[in-house]
Amino acid sequence: MSENLLSVDEVIDVAYDIFLEMAPDNLEAADVALFTLQFDERGAAEMIETGADWPQHVGFEVDAEAYSEVRIGLVNEETDELDDVFARLLISRTPDEKFCHILWKRD
């Protein structure tokens, strides 16, 4: 099955494009400005192990091979870890299935 799935880079690209399109409507204006101003130095989009909490958000068991989680945010310069997460996205890796669910940062 994995030969027909989107690559890691493709999943990250899709997630980032969706994030950029939807962020102004789903994040506080200050967060959008912060992300935009600091993305070149500290911004990151990374595919991580799919969180165990996704079934409660999407209403179905998430197949970790068919879906991937991408986190988008800013990296802490001291720890070199993504610590200011603006969105978590669950993306289908199947090219024909246009599924994405986003959990937005809430203060």
Rank of each mutant, 00 (worst) to 15 (best):
E69A: 05
V32E: 06
D80P: 00
E41K: 09
V58G: 01
F19A: 02
D83P: 02
E10Q: 09
D84P: 00
D84E: 14
V70F: 12
E77P: 11
A23N: 10
I48T: 04
A66E: 08
F19R: 04
H57E: 13
D83W: 08
D17W: 15
M47Y: 10
A33I: 14
G51C: 12
D25I: 05
A87G: 04
A30Q: 11
V11C: 03
E10D: 07
D63C: 14
D25Y: 12
V14W: 02
R42F: 12
A15Y: 00
D17M: 11
E10L: 13
M47S: 14
I12V: 08
E41S: 09
K98C: 12
I12P: 00
E65M: 08
E69W: 00
I91H: 00
E81R: 14
N76Q: 05
D53G: 10
E10R: 15
E21S: 13
L27T: 03
G43W: 06
D96A: 03
V75M: 02
Y16W: 10
V85K: 04
S68P: 02
N76D: 13
T79P: 01
D96H: 05
E61R: 10
V85T: 05
Q38E: 10
E77C: 07
T36H: 07
L89M: 08
V32P: 03
L74K: 03
A45K: 06
D25M: 12
L34M: 14
D13Q: 15
D25A: 15
G73Q: 05
G43H: 07
D96N: 04
R88L: 06
E28V: 13
A30I: 14
F99C: 04
I91Y: 01
R71I: 06
T79H: 06
L27N: 07
I18Y: 15
V70M: 15
L37I: 14
F60C: 05
A64Q: 12
A15G: 07
F19S: 01
V14M: 08
K98S: 11
V14D: 00
R71Y: 09
G73E: 04
I91Q: 00
V14F: 09
E65G: 08
E97T: 04
V58S: 01
M22A: 10
P55C: 09
K98N: 06
H57A: 10
V75D: 01
A66I: 10
L82Y: 01
D25Q: 10
L37S: 13
S68K: 05
E49P: 09
D25L: 13
D84C: 11
V32F: 11
G59E: 04
A29F: 09
Q38F: 03
A33C: 13
G43V: 06
A52H: 10
T94N: 11
Y16F: 11
A33R: 09
A45Q: 06
D25T: 09
A45N: 09
N76H: 04
M47E: 06
E77W: 13
S92K: 02
G51V: 03
A45I: 06
